[in-house]
Design a protein around this nucleic acid. Structure first.
Lengths: 339, 339
DNA sequence: GTGAAAGCGCTAACAT
DNA sequence: ATGTTAGCGCTTTCAC
């Protein structure tokens, strides 16, 4: 620490320093750093590169962002990054963004719409190139975004909000497949643990559950509504086993709920899958490590993240906003009675 | 979409627009927006605020960052954000940052030192105000950071790298407490599942395990070294039960490892805690939802995150870098034989 | 209490 | 192939 006490926080060495050191103009440094838009003689370029190395020059991203009107940063808003599914999604998004040289700003809405909007606004003022939003609401209010004319893509939505790109899976179809599998195991009384999406419209997973039941002429089993969390699933499980027509199988709308459900059943001395079979939704990593392992409808998060990033970088935004629906895959483990 | 095809991405309305609309100078708008450094007449301020509202003005953070030399953004580098512990940590950091009006850039090193350094450099060029680093290595190479003279704080480190602030817990002490608890249950042959930290130096948790054993005059049980993940714990568990002196209790260096261990034991038909008791480290949310619930050494992540952010904002960085060690708390559940 | 203006570091159009 | 230069939107000093 031989430096004077108060040091400007910005990196001391600027493009001008590099230019001087290399004996060229500032523009040439730009050309070299950005590999364009003009090209420079190899020898000159080499001198510049050397200067950059020696001086330890790093371009100032803030200046670049100001000039370009874009920070080459994505803003990711999640309900809750520590939820295993969203954590996985965040990881995939970070990877996809990184591959394109974008940084990722992350914020949690914690299930609050107002927090979501606050973060949205914050991101906009920070000149993020695009916003990736896993909204709390199924039809988020995006007026702020619209006025800023910034690309947005909705993550993990069964359907698009009008005028916006979205990626998601077919919740209904995936759920239906899982429930059909439970029926195939011989179950007639199949309950549902379903998350609350803050909307009047039924969740696709609830619809898929109903579809499967209807197809087989079964009547709906008991429903427990609770948050998409382990805690929610635990509470739902307690209610389900206290009810007077205990189901022999349960479909849970998230792996986290299923983990909570599992705990409730274990505590009640109920055997899985012998007494109650379980299937759930998400295909998060934890589903492989519960006991027993969860039969679950897996979402292809990495592909979805890549598509989201592509939707938002790949040229004309909002011109023809697309809804990309990805196929789910039923992963069969022991909780349903297989194996 | 009636606008021309190519629209500058930046928000159309700038401080100048606001100034014009409010009939004041640009400077006054700044004063109002930042509540300083000069004060303005209430009536004028009201006019400016009104203009801001009507025009939908949002300050351009890139310009601000350029001018100020700071983006009011923290860079957080994690080995792996979808690991439950780090996910929790990220959440706490995001919250703490948000409280101070800072945004959070997040990146994963995926256990790779070179990736860690790449992200570090990237963050620096992006003028982050500070870097919060949960390093892969126990003594990370921070020369880049040093030359940029930017505040850094090491997260989740048992000890500080010389000259840098750090927050962490006393791994050794926490582990010792957990193992003592296992001994108290009557166990004499206590195994260890320990993560690899890419260092010659023994992990504090290994030392704590040894301490507890030594105190009671017990010899070391079998050791299985594996990554700090569920997969790692699973593999370690398989090895442990295949070994010829199977322990009656195991201490795992992370909850994730314990989750994997649990699965391996369940698959082997081994009862927990009757046949093998388990205790682990971290106190992540998942520890409450395994079966049986994990007895674990909890880290106070929220407090640690707040301290990290404080260390990095609270004035003089690097002048007297502090190592803040937080106390752990043994949370007793069923996996150790309690309850 | 308010305004004018310099300049943060960079990009790219326009000179040469 | 390289140099010159005008801003990007903002903060803040200095004048009034």
């Amino acid at each position: 620490m031989t430096q004077p006490a108060v040091q400007p926080l910005r990196s001391a060495v600027t493009r001008t320093d590099v230019a001087r050191y290399a004996g060229v103009s500032a523009a040439v440094v730009s050309y070299v750093v950005n590999s364009g838009p003009r090209n420079v003689a190899p020898a000159t370029a080499a001198r510049v590169l050397e200067a950059i190395r020696v001086l330890g020059y790093r371009p100032n991203a803030a200046a670049r962002a100001l000039k370009l009107g874009s920070s080459e940063t994505f803003g990711l808003i999640l309900p809750e990054n520590s939820n295993p599914l969203f954590a996985q999604l965040a990881h995939s998004v970070e990877e996809a963004a990184d591959r394109l040289g974008f940084a990722l700003m992350m914020a949690n809405s914690d299930g609050s719409l107002s927090k979501e909007r606050r973060h949205l606004r914050n991101f906009l003022s920070r000149q993020v190139t695009a916003v990736l939003l896993a909204s709390v609401a199924s039809e988020p209010d995006l007026s702020d975004v619209i006025s800023a004319d910034i690309p947005v893509v909705l993550l993990n939505q069964g359907q698009a909000a009008p005028g916006f790109a979205a990626v998601g899976v077919d919740l209904r179809q995936g759920a239906q497949e899982a429930v059909k599998h439970l029926i195939w195991h011989g179950h007639r009384n199949i309950g549902l643990v379903i998350g609350t999406n803050g909307t009047q419209k039924a969740d696709g997973r609830e619809l898929g559950w109903l579809d499967a039941l209807a197809t087989e002429g079964l009547r709906a089993g008991p429903i427990a509504r609770a948050p998409f969390t382990r805690e929610g699933g635990y509470a739902a499980g307690k209610r389900l086993i206290a009810g007077n027509e205990r189901p022999t199988a349960v479909f849970a709308s998230s792996d986290s709920q299923a983990a909570g459900l599992l705990r409730a059943l274990h505590e009640g001395g109920i055997r899985i899958p012998e007494d109650i079979a379980i299937a759930s939704f998400d295909g998060s990593p934890e589903s492989e490590y519960t006991w027993p392992g969860l039969t679950t409808v897996a979402q292809p998060l990495a592909a979805m993240a890549a598509a989201a990033v592509e939707a938002v970088t790949g040229g004309g935004h909002n011109d023809n906003p697309t809804l990309r629906i990805f196929p789910t895959e039923l992963i069969v483990r022991r909780s349903c009675g297989c194996g």
